[in-house]
Amino acid sequence: MHTISGRAETRTISIAAPPSTVFDFVGDARNLLKWAPGFAPNIATSGDEWVVDYGTEKLRLIVRTSRDAGTVDFLRAADPRTGGFSRVLPNGEGAEYQFTLVFPAGTPEAAVADQLKIIDEELQTVRRFCEAA
Rank of each mutant, 00 (worst) to 15 (best):
K117L: 11
G27I: 13
G92V: 03
L116I: 13
F103E: 00
I13V: 11
A133F: 03
A78C: 03
A16N: 12
F74V: 04
A36V: 15
Y54M: 13
A78D: 13
E57V: 04
A95K: 02
I118S: 14
V52I: 10
R30S: 12
P41W: 08
S86F: 06
A132E: 13
D73M: 04
I119R: 06
L123Y: 15
R67D: 04
L123V: 15
A40K: 12
T45A: 12
V88P: 01
C130K: 08
T21L: 13
N42Y: 14
D53W: 01
E96D: 12
T21C: 06
Q124D: 15
E49S: 05
G84D: 05
D73Y: 12
G83V: 02
A77M: 01
V102Q: 06
E9T: 10
G83M: 02
T21W: 02
Q124T: 14
A113L: 07
R128K: 14
R30N: 15
E57P: 00
A17Q: 10
W35S: 12
R67L: 11
K58Q: 10
S66G: 00
K34Q: 15
L59E: 07
A105K: 09
A8M: 06
F103D: 01
S14G: 14
T45F: 11
A95T: 06
E122W: 09
Q98V: 06
K58R: 10
D53V: 05
